[in-house]
Design a protein around this nucleic acid. Structure first.
Length: 264
DNA sequence: ATGGCGCAACCTTTGCGA
C-alpha cells in the first residue's frame, strides 16, 4: 500500500503530469493506491474525473475557482468506494476548500491544504493559526474513532531547521516561525508521526522549491509537504520518500510528491 | 538588488503563492 501527497498548483495545467506519474508508478510495479492533491484551482464541474478514471482512479474532491481545492485519488483496483466522507473541518466555518476526508476499507485519509499565512504580521497568518487549532482539535476527536489515520498534504510549515535550505535567512519568517512550528508539534502530540523522519534521509531533503532564482537547480527549498501517521499506521510504515522526478519535468509544479509505503 | 516565476482572472495588469 502506497499513499502519496502532491500540491499540483493547478490540476488543469498539471493533469498530464499527474496521469504520467500515476501511470509510471503503476508500470514500475509500485502503484500509488491513494494520491492526495492540493491546489486544484478549479471548480467541481471542471474536475477531470473521466481522464483519471481512464488510468484507474476515482476522485473525491472539493474544488473552488482560482484558489485552493483538494482531492483524494483512489486506485479502483485496490481501494473500495470511500465511506464516511467529509469536506473541510467539521464545525469550522470556512469558504476556502482545504480538506477532504474519507475512509477506504479501514484506512482513514485526511487530505489537507494548510493556509499559507503570507507573513507573521498578516491577517492570513491569524487565519492560519486558527485553522491549525481547529484542525488539531478535530483530529484529536477523529483519532479516537479512526485508529488507522493518515494526514497528508501541503502543511505550509517546515517543522525544523533541517527542513530549510538556509535557516538563517528564513529565521522567524512565514512557514518556519515559532507559532507555526508549535502548531505542527501540536499535531505530533496527538500521537501522529512524521513518516519521513522515521527513516534515514539525505540531508537537504525538500518538497518545494521557488520557481524563481533557480530554486530547484540550487536545491534552495523547504520541506513543507508531509505525511503524518497514527501509531497503528506508523508501525506499518516501511518507507517514506520524496520523489523529485516530477519537479524535473517541463512546466512542473513547484512542489513534488511525497510517498509513504505501508506494509500489508 | 526582497527582484526574480507561474497561475488565474472582470486578462496586457494584478493578486497570490511560499
Amino acid at each position: 500500500m502506497r499513499i502519496a501527497t502532491w500540491n499540483v498548483n493547478s490540476l488543469k495545467v498539471r493533469l498530464p503530469q499527474v496521469l504520467q506519474w500515476l501511470t509510471e508508478q503503476e508500470q514500475a510495479g509500485t502503484p500509488i493506491d491513494a494520491l492526495c492533491l492540493q491546489e486544484l484551482k478549479l471548480p467541481d464541474d471542471k474536475f477531470p474525473a473521466a481522464e483519471l478514471a481512464q488510468v484507474g482512479y476515482r476522485g473525491l474532491y472539493t474544488g473552488q475557482k482560482t484558489y485552493n481545492g483538494v482531492a483524494i485519488l483512489a486506485r479502483t483496483a485496490s481501494l473500495p468506494e470511500p465511506t464516511d466522507t467529509l469536506l473541510n473541518i467539521p464545525g469550522f466555518e470556512d469558504e476556502q476548500r482545504r480538506v477532504v476526508t474519507a475512509t477506504y476499507g479501514d484506512l482513514r485519509l485526511v487530505c489537507a491544504y494548510f493556509p499559507n499565512g503570507q507573513s507573521p504580521e498578516s491577517d492570513k497568518f491569524v487565519y492560519k493559526l486558527k485553522w491549525l487549532e481547529a484542525l488539531t482539535a478535530w483530529l484529536k476527536d477523529e483519532l479516537t474513532r479512526h485508529p488507522r489515520l493518515a494526514l497528508l498534504g501541503d502543511f505550509n510549515i517546515a517543522p525544523e531547521d533541517r527542513d530549510v535550505h538556509d535557516p538563517a535567512k528564513w529565521e522567524g519568517q512565514n512557514l518556519v516561525s515559532p507559532p507555526e512550528r508549535a502548531a505542527f508539534r501540536g499535531l505530533l502530540e496527538l500521537g501522529l508521526a512524521d513518516a519521513f523522519r522515521r527513516f534515514e534521509q539525505p540531508d537537504k531533503s525538500f518538497t518545494w522549491w521557488d520557481y524563481r532564482m533557480l530554486g530547484f537547480r540550487r536545491n534552495a527549498g523547504l520541506r513543507i509537504d508531509h505525511i503524518l501517521l497514527s501509531p497503528a499506521l506508523a508501525d506499518q510504515c516501511s518507507a517514506c520518500v520524496i520523489d523529485r522526478v516530477p519537479r524535473t519535468w517541463e512546466q512542473p509544479s513547484d512542489h513534488t510528491p511525497v510517498v509513504a509505503t505501508l506494509a500489508g
